[in-house]
Design a binder for these strands. Structure first.
Lengths: 186, 186
DNA sequence: ACAGCCATGTAAGTTGTTACATGATTCG
DNA sequence: CGAATCATGTAACAACTTACATGGCTGT
């Protein structure tokens, strides 16, 4: 599921301009690309040259002219093929865990504040994800696709929640350990 | 926490050659880089030129000569600074969720088999993570670092577990929905 | 004999990033 | 008046990848 396929996928929902797609990708947490021009406009051109999409130039009064891209039948076929390939497992980059692996140089207190800060950051991420999930829940269609979108939002919320739970439990355990060591020393 | 810092971090544990570091990174799921030569040897050279590491050439009987890298005091300082910066939140790329967002073109049956396959893949990932966690648990030191490593392993296991739980629940719900639709149609 | 490990390194490529350029319009 | 939005596109670079080259040693 690279950017090419993702753009094809987005175009199944409705025709869109490069600018539209760029915004969707940039504002989403699901579509993890930065949503920069260079990539998107280039990929769209490539898709067009391969016959997977076509575009129609739309002039607008008092707004710049835009190219509205639409999926072709061939594009739909290629997308379907891609979707039917066995799904990939999630790829996670937890820099905090790498930090922990390198944390020998830190004192217990420093490590604890690190955990506290991590908890705050993860909590913020969870709150954001919750907000998006609620917004998705308000749409209230009962098509399969709106249900899938809801489940997707739930997945993300639960991922953040699991991380927060781990961070809390581990911080508490660390706190106990640290206190014990202190009383020992006194 | 980029590759530079990670290499510094790995060198706190013990001096190592580029080849050693490459293997650690390539075999680990935590250190998410591919562990290719080009990057690692280049970064090590860069770190050496900045005075963060030094190397000692070690000739070996019946094995190629190697450069064993060691952290300098300055390297330790730079690493500490990096570790004390506020930790980053995890970055997750769930291509499966992107697929779901593009899945309008699929039938209910196709979607179901997609979920089934995803479950299998995630289960495999969980099994692998569990194996690594058990191996880590067997080490049985009671230093802070071995405890941290254990907690790290647990984090990874729980992340996989959360994903598997979600996949199962969602697949079951989807199955019910699909069956209902079928009975409706009959 | 042939594969695979140890150990270094380079070449060539893909992917993704930030930042810039243009130019009209709209909002505070 | 300046900033932001709409809309396209390019330039320069950073990060990361696969694949290759070398060469002796080890195990089947």
């Amino acid at each position: 599921m690279d950017l090419r396929e993702t753009l094809l996928g987005l175009l199944t929902q409705k025709p869109a301009s490069g600018y539209d797609l760029k915004r969707v990708i940039a504002e989403s947490d699901l579509f993890y690309w930065s949503g920069n021009n260079n990539q998107i406009y280039k990929v769209l051109l490539e898709l067009q040259q391969e016959g997977l999409v076509t575009f129609e130039v739309q002039t607008q009064a008092s707004l710049p002219t835009k190219k509205v891209y639409t999926l072709t039948d061939q594009g739909r076929r290629v997308l379907r093929e891609g979707l039917l390939r066995p799904p990939e497992v999630p790829e996670t980059r937890k820099n905090f865990l790498i930090q922990l692996a390198c944390a020998q140089a830190l004192t217990d207190e420093e490590l604890l504040t690190l955990f506290e800060r991590y908890e705050v950051e993860v909590q913020a991420g969870l709150n954001l994800a919750r907000g998006l999930a609620e917004r998705a829940a308000k749409h209230e269609g009962d098509s399969r696709q709106t249900w899938l979108d809801l489940m997707t939002r739930e997945n993300i919320v639960q991922t953040w929640q699991a991380e927060l739970d781990w961070a809390r439990r581990t911080r508490e355990e660390l706190q106990e350990k640290t206190n014990k060591d202190k009383t020992k020393r006194n």
